[in-house]
Simulated scan of single mutants.
Amino acid sequence: MVHKTKGVVLRTVKFGETSIVVSVFTELFGLQSYLVNGIRQVSKKGTAKGAYFQPASLLELVVYKNEFKNLQRIKEYKWSYLYQHLFSDIFKNAVALFAIELLNKCLKEPEPNNELFYFIEDALLHLDEASPTVTANFPLFIALHLAVFFGFRINDEYTEAKHYLDLQEGVFTEEQPQHSYYLIDREAEAVSHILKVMQPSELEDVKLNQDMRRRILTALEGYYALHVPDFGTMRTLPVLREISN
């Protein structure tokens, strides 16, 4: 059957001489893989169709859906939204790629999740127009709020007494955890602040230096590794650290 759906591109792999296999998180079907033929050829107008399938691209798709096949096909595609800055701004692009890799590592089954799709779509739209401060804080926002959709959210109960964030349990506590997966004091308080942020524009009020952001992000990578099977390490995180110098 043929369906219309929006999708965000997660990953593209070359297939043969001119084709690709693209992983897309779709509004209707969740995670899907599509074979797109002839996409790596330059058209008569001199444009490369492959530009549509960059990670983080937001597309409107007309797709074939066969329940008995793992690899589907796309009938039509066009931009759902054409970014003004995200593909050309090096820092914003690095943040977007971080968000996409994190999402891709968490998605395990092709199950529909409309709320998650709308969260990612909205986040990327905000990132495209974000100020430098919002952009710098964006990876923390994504990492902390994405966890909610996969069942291991951090309960925001930070107080001056509960100044340890136990990343193994996902709770703030008064007692120092008996393991190394925790944040303390200012870093724990910063996590609490970002957990309260509902709209990315509010990240403008989160005042952190680059060293603190890096330490929290590294800790959150460990947090995901504790809660997502076969999570491994983030390939985009070292790039993000380097660019944010």
Score class of each variant (00 low, 15 high):
D211G: 04
G46I: 03
E76S: 12
A143R: 09
L86I: 14
S88Q: 15
V9M: 03
V191W: 02
V239T: 13
Q54H: 08
K49R: 13
V148R: 10
F53V: 06
T18P: 01
R215C: 04
A48I: 06
F149S: 10
L102C: 07
V148F: 10
N245M: 06
K75F: 11
I90Q: 07
Y223V: 05
H85T: 14
L86E: 09
A190M: 03
L140P: 01
G30C: 14
R235D: 13
L35M: 08
V95D: 15
L124G: 09
P200T: 04
A94I: 03
V36E: 07
H193V: 13
H163S: 14
Q178I: 10
Y224T: 03
F98S: 07
L146E: 09
V9F: 04
D166Q: 04
A188K: 06
V24N: 07
K162D: 08
L28S: 15
L140A: 12
I184N: 11
R153E: 15
R73P: 01
C106H: 10
E189L: 11
C106Y: 07
L226W: 01
N37G: 09
L107G: 01
L125S: 05
K45C: 05
G16V: 00
E169R: 12
W79M: 00
L97N: 13
E121C: 07
L208D: 08
L167C: 01
N137R: 05
R186F: 10
F98H: 14
N155Q: 15
E76H: 11
N113G: 08
L28A: 12
T5K: 03
V239S: 08
R40W: 12
D205H: 12
T233H: 09
Y181P: 02
E204H: 04
A130C: 05
F25C: 02
M234G: 00
Q168S: 11
F68Q: 11
E242P: 02
Y77Q: 06
M198T: 14
G170S: 13
H3C: 07
M198Y: 10
K108A: 09
Y34D: 01
P112Y: 07
T159W: 03
L226K: 06
G38Y: 01
L203T: 12
P139C: 00
S33Q: 15
L35H: 02
N114F: 15
K65E: 14
K207M: 09
S88N: 12
E109G: 02
M1T: 13
L102W: 06
D156M: 00
D185H: 07
T5D: 13
Y34F: 14
L203S: 12
T18H: 02
I184P: 02
F119Y: 12
P177K: 00
T135R: 01
Y77F: 15
T18M: 00
